Amino acid sequence: MTDFSEQDLSGSGFQQVDLSGSTFRRADMTDLDIREVNFSGTRVRAAYFDGVRMTGVEVPDMEISGEIVRLVVNGVDVVPLVEAELNRQMPERALMAPTTVDGFREAFAITDRLWGETMGRARELETDQLYEQVDDEWSFIETLRHLGFAHACWIGGVVLAQRSPWHPLDLPWDEAPEFEDVPWARRARPELHEVMALRRQRRNTVAEVLDGLTDAGLDRSVTSATQFMTDATGLTVADCLRVVLNEEWQHRLYAERDLAKLAS
């Protein structure tokens, strides 16, 4: 097996080569020209697709999960259809893009209620199962730890402009850049009650922010106080709250899916 690390292979040609089982991490794959290749069994995670065109492809079985703005399949933009179906399956989802303070309060109350139901199912499992990764994704505990990190980033570090909003149990996403002051204890095994205590603290902080906020205040521009969140420039308080709300919604769905597999 050949290892290519920190090398410039741009412009290279690969013809009649076997790359099966290869791994690509933090690779620049823009403007690739890919023809007559076999992607069967390929796993793509945390990737960015913009302006990608696929023609003459055969897709017997493919699953996509992520933030999709426009996806045209055989001339039809399927995103509005998917959005309508998701909202039909879970009517509460339509309330996850609020524009008023009261709307945010209602949306967070919904996610809290749904997470409460999810936690009830999680408590029926053994502790080791809560640390078990399903399909190489985060475990249930890791999912909760990442939600804590999202709150720290967008509420503590941006909305409240705290320079060090982190808790040792916060868990960044796997591909996040490493900074000295950002926690990175991936092997930590906290008890469920410890993670839940941190979660309650973070949710109380959001409640306090909303209690002191007006609808006009939602449009206030924010700038990150941490070096980690440099991409927050130009966003508003409402933008940051929506990011956290989306994390709450999406990760509960992931947790429900994984809990179902663990319980089966």
Rank of each mutant, 00 (worst) to 15 (best):
residue 195 V to P: 06
residue 201 Q to I: 02
residue 188 A to F: 05
residue 200 R to Y: 05
residue 138 W to A: 11
residue 193 H to E: 15
residue 132 E to K: 13
residue 234 G to T: 07
residue 119 M to H: 13
residue 241 L to A: 10
residue 166 W to E: 06
residue 238 A to V: 02
residue 183 P to M: 09
residue 200 R to K: 12
residue 242 R to W: 02
residue 141 I to M: 14
residue 151 H to F: 13
residue 237 V to Y: 04
residue 192 L to P: 00
residue 159 V to L: 09
residue 234 G to P: 03
residue 200 R to C: 01
residue 198 L to C: 01
residue 199 R to K: 13
residue 180 E to Y: 00
residue 250 Q to V: 11
residue 220 R to M: 07
residue 190 P to H: 11
residue 140 F to E: 03
residue 208 E to N: 09
residue 139 S to F: 09
residue 239 D to V: 01
residue 132 E to H: 10
residue 241 L to D: 07
residue 187 R to P: 01
residue 136 D to S: 12
residue 162 Q to W: 09
residue 120 G to I: 01
residue 141 I to P: 05
residue 239 D to P: 04
residue 131 Y to E: 03
residue 212 G to D: 11
residue 221 S to F: 03
residue 247 E to T: 07
residue 251 H to Q: 11
residue 155 I to K: 05
residue 237 V to Q: 08
residue 247 E to W: 02
residue 166 W to G: 01
residue 130 L to A: 11
residue 217 G to M: 07
residue 183 P to D: 10
residue 164 S to G: 03
residue 179 F to S: 01
residue 233 T to H: 11
residue 216 A to R: 08
residue 223 T to L: 09
residue 248 E to T: 05
residue 215 D to N: 15
residue 120 G to D: 10
residue 152 A to H: 08
residue 246 N to F: 00
residue 142 E to M: 08
residue 123 R to I: 05
residue 195 V to H: 06
residue 147 L to E: 00
residue 128 D to I: 01
residue 210 L to V: 02
residue 248 E to L: 01
residue 226 T to C: 10
residue 210 L to P: 05
residue 227 Q to E: 15
residue 194 E to Q: 15
residue 212 G to K: 05
residue 199 R to L: 10
residue 161 A to Q: 15
residue 163 R to E: 15
residue 160 L to I: 00
residue 185 A to K: 05
residue 206 V to W: 04
residue 201 Q to M: 12
residue 130 L to P: 10
residue 199 R to G: 02
residue 144 L to F: 12
residue 135 D to N: 11
residue 131 Y to W: 12
residue 236 T to E: 04
residue 190 P to R: 08
residue 189 R to N: 04
residue 163 R to K: 14
residue 201 Q to S: 13
residue 179 F to D: 06
residue 127 T to V: 14
residue 231 D to H: 13
residue 236 T to P: 06
residue 128 D to E: 14
residue 203 R to Y: 11
residue 208 E to H: 09
residue 243 V to P: 03
residue 249 W to S: 11
residue 127 T to N: 13
residue 208 E to M: 12
residue 170 D to H: 11
residue 133 Q to I: 00
residue 153 C to T: 02
residue 244 V to R: 13
residue 215 D to M: 08
residue 123 R to K: 15
residue 153 C to S: 09
residue 134 V to E: 00
residue 148 G to H: 12
residue 243 V to S: 10
residue 224 S to E: 06
residue 220 R to D: 14
residue 237 V to W: 07
residue 200 R to L: 12
residue 177 P to M: 08
residue 177 P to D: 11
residue 251 H to G: 12
residue 233 T to A: 14
residue 238 A to W: 01
residue 248 E to S: 04
residue 218 L to E: 07
residue 181 D to K: 00
residue 134 V to R: 12
residue 176 A to M: 05
residue 125 L to R: 15
residue 222 V to D: 09
residue 235 L to V: 00
